[in-house]
Amino acid sequence: MKQILITLTLVVLSSILIETAFAQVTATQSVSLTVNTVYKIATSGNPGALTVTTGSAGTDALTSVSDNSTSYSITQNFGNTVKITANLDAALSAGYTLQLNLASSKGTSAGSVDISNATSGSAVNVVTAIAKGADASQAIGYTFSALASAGTLASTSKTVTLTLTN
């Protein structure tokens, strides 16, 4: 009788052990991935000096100069209504004009936009309706023009801020 009891106990314990072993065959882990709103914009560098050196006799508008040596790249996942605005750190004096033209394959370029008087409080749109995703190495074009009546301009540095915003 005693041996039977012991045997039965062993069988039960063994069954429990087997169940326990099988219960650990799988393990689970909760993994969450959250993607927040991302805005990224960068430029390839600074353009070369824009120096007006010539003009035509009898014409107040001097010959403009251009630079297309730089580019910009963006990445955004916010929406399809994102835009790029541009402004200068300080407005140009009257008679000098700086135009900016940003190419875009994900949005609508506004073409050449006069940013001479665009400051932080009055930034102007240069690209609109940018779709979600990335747009790399899009050309930045600057055109600087001056009127003879504005006189000469000593070498001046201006900071152009391109803002990717909604």
Binding site: L17, T28, T34, T75
Partner: peptide, 26 residues
């Protein structure tokens, strides 16, 4: 009997893409 065990050191993993390290244009 056949014993098989598997477990993870932590039951929860959280990851967030915030834009840090994201390169413009990619």
């Amino acid at each position: 009997n056949t014993i098989t065990m598997v477990s993870v050191s932590s039951g929860t993993v959280s990851m967030t893409i915030t834009g840090t390290g994201v390169i413009a244009g990619q």
